[in-house]
């Protein structure tokens, strides 16, 4: 299948230290890929390079076959590359309905309209209600975000991303900081993601990785050291070394 998302030989160094070192990755529609790696492996830098918040020294990023390396972050979102944030970045004073409506309006080119209100736009409201209903947030849709539980905020984060109708979705630790009792809902939401959507999930929780991903990519010291099935990842000697090595170092440091 034609890849929807491609990274070719991406390189970025900070002061001589190669934080992303010749990374290549390709995803097809419907892929469920988990990106894992020990702390300091360069995951955040990789995400920033892919989303356009950081310029690579060399290499290429492609969305749907189109090279977007020279296009800024906003342009990449408009081409279907959407991300969620590890730490929720929601508007505390706004309601879940307003969040999703803003995303829907933006996607449909109506976010600059100077009149009307989304509550009076049937097509927007239908989408808002459907999306929030799916994620179990419909009852809370008119509450302020600062008043709803953290787990629900994580779900809203996913709802906002989905409202942008992405082709490629980058989920940055979707379950981070969520109490154990609420992770079930988030896993359900992840399982219910549109089938044709390519999802790249960055996650530390290995249980979640194994349940969600059909493919695991391991990043260590800025390079991909493993790209294969979840069942093989724990057997791979280099992966074991990268993780054990980092744990060994961590215990030394402590």
């Amino acid at each position: 299948m034609q890849p929807i998302f491609e990274v070719r030989n991406l390189k970025r160094a900070f002061g001589g230290l190669a934080v992303t070192n010749d990374v290549s990755l390709s995803m097809a529609p419907g892929d469920r890929v988990a990106l894992i790696g020990p702390n300091g492996a360069g995951k955040t830098t990789f995400v920033n390079l892919v989303t356009g918040n950081l310029k690579p020294d060399s290499g290429e990023v492609r969305i749907g076959g189109e090279a977007v390396t020279g296009i800024d972050a906003i342009g990449r979102v408009r081409r279907g590359l959407v991300r969620s944030f590890q730490v929720t970045r929601l508007f505390a004073d706004m309601t879940p309905a307003e969040h999703v409506a803003l995303a829907v309006l933006q996607r449909s080119g109506r976010a600059g309209r100077l009149f009307g209100n989304f509550l009076g736009m049937p097509d927007v409201m239908a989408e808002v209600e459907e999306l929030l209903g799916k994620l179990g947030l419909k009852e809370l849709m008119h509450r302020k975000v600062s008043e709803i539980a953290y787990g629900q905020q994580r779900l809203l984060e996913i709802a906002v991303a989905l409202a942008l109708k992405p082709r490629v979705l980058l989920l940055d630790e979707p379950a981070a900081g969520v109490p154990q009792s609420d992770t079930g809902r988030i896993e359900q939401a992840l399982a219910d993601l549109p089938a044709d959507l390519a999802v790249l999930m960055i996650e530390h929780d290995m249980d979640l990785v194994f349940r969600f991903a059909k493919r695991v990519v391991v990043l260590a010291a800025g390079a991909i050291i493993f790209d294969g099935s979840p069942s093989d990842v724990t057997k791979d000697p280099r992966v074991r070394e990268a993780y054990l090595g980092s744990y060994a170092n961590a215990s030394h440091a402590a």
Partner: peptide
């Protein structure tokens, strides 16, 4: 209260 007004409130926050 228009979509544009909502967009601006969002910009102010983040």
């Amino acid at each position: 209260r228009s979509p544009f007004g909502m967009l601006c409130r969002g910009i102010k926050e983040d």
